[in-house]
Amino acid sequence: MREISLEEAQATLSAMIDDAVQGRPSIITRHGEPQVVVLGFTEWERLSGVPSFGRLLLSAPLEPEDLPERNPGAFRPMDV
Rank of each mutant, 00 (worst) to 15 (best):
M1C: 08
R2D: 13
I4E: 09
S5V: 01
S5T: 11
S5W: 00
L6N: 08
L6P: 01
E8F: 01
A9P: 02
A9G: 06
Q10A: 10
T12P: 06
T12Y: 09
S14C: 08
A15K: 15
I17Y: 05
I17V: 13
D19Y: 03
D19G: 06
V21L: 11
Q22V: 01
G23E: 06
P25D: 07
S26K: 07
S26T: 13
S26I: 03
I27V: 10
I27N: 02
I27P: 03
I27D: 03
I27R: 05
I28Q: 06
I28V: 14
T29G: 05
H31W: 04
H31T: 03
E33H: 15
Q35A: 14
V37Y: 03
V37G: 06
L39G: 02
L39D: 01
G40P: 04
E43G: 03
W44T: 00
W44P: 01
W44H: 06
E45N: 03
E45P: 02
E45W: 01
R46P: 02
L47G: 01
G49F: 00
G49P: 04
G49R: 03
V50R: 06
V50T: 10
G54V: 04
G54K: 06
G54F: 03
R55I: 05
R55M: 13
R55Q: 15
R55N: 15
R55F: 10
R55K: 15
L58C: 14
A60I: 00
P61E: 13
P61D: 15
P61N: 14
P61K: 13
L62W: 02
L62V: 05
P64C: 10
N71Q: 04
P72L: 12
G73C: 08
G73R: 12
G73V: 09
A74G: 10
A74E: 07
A74C: 00
R76M: 15
P77Y: 08
P77S: 14
D79H: 12
D79N: 13
V80C: 05
V80M: 12
